[in-house]
Simulated scan of single mutants.
Amino acid sequence: MEISFVSKRVLVTGAGKGIGRALAKRLANYGAEVVAVSRSKEGLDSLAAETKNIKTICVDLSDWDATRKAIKSAGPIDCLVNNAAYASLESFLDVKPENFDMMRLHEITRKSVINVSQVVVEGMIQRKKGGSIVNISSQASQAALADHTVYCGTKGALDMVSRVMALELGPHNIRVNCVNPTVVLTDMGRLGWSKPEKANPMLAKIPLGRFAEVDEVVDAVVYLLSDKASMINGVTLPIDGGFLGT
């Protein structure tokens, strides 16, 4: 199956590292003009130096107005990947008033999806050419994980926001889907899950017996963005080796 993004402009948030960085490079290799968004100028500069057809925008997505201005400056967008995220872990009993600042950051993560998408979608509707959006969620949206109280709640909310987006934007030929990975072996993922006492209980619940590689998530996102997935809308796609299905 040949997938091409020639003549497509794709905006990817959280593109300075990890999944977002790998995705931006893959899309550029498939012919897309990529708009890479991150709050890390260093990450964006190195990404642009490595790959052609990439425009970079450095902005803190927690700033509502600055974000809208920055995304509008990107010009017309055909596809959007909301990948930027923040994670902090605490158990249910440890969620206290002093944790509200961390919970607020989770709220910002979700709000940024709505904020960025609103700006991009307004342009899609005006041009009447449709489009595709993929939101990066998690298996934690559908499975209770210890010490993930706020994280699970935030990702569960993102799934539902995505479904409503799919419902309301579908008549404009704009598709909205989620991918829901298990632990992904980014540099941070390898560091965070390197200890057997932490990793083994999770691995025991994954029928394939391993965590996801970055390219395996990128493959799914690229497919959902592409015209090959033209009738797929409103799904939450697990990339978890069977964790949620067994």
Rank of each mutant, 00 (worst) to 15 (best):
N135G: 06
I125N: 06
N115R: 04
N53Y: 11
S138F: 02
S62P: 01
Q126C: 08
N82Y: 06
K69M: 12
L61E: 01
L105H: 11
I108W: 10
S62W: 01
S132K: 01
V113H: 10
I71C: 07
N83W: 13
C58H: 02
I57M: 04
V121Y: 00
S137C: 14
S73Y: 07
I57H: 01
T109Q: 12
I136R: 04
I114R: 06
V81E: 08
V113N: 09
N83K: 12
S132L: 02
D101A: 15
A66V: 03
M124D: 02
S91V: 08
S132E: 05
D78V: 06
V120C: 03
T67Q: 02
I77H: 00
D78S: 10
A74M: 03
Y86G: 13
E90D: 11
S137V: 11
K69G: 05
Y86Q: 09
V134F: 06
R104G: 04
L89A: 09
S62D: 11
R127Q: 08
Y86V: 15
G123M: 02
K96S: 13
S132N: 05
A70R: 00
G131P: 05
D78N: 15
V134N: 03
D94Y: 02
V116Q: 03
S112I: 06
C58Y: 02
V113P: 02
D65M: 11
P97S: 13
K55V: 10
N83L: 14
V113L: 12
K111R: 13
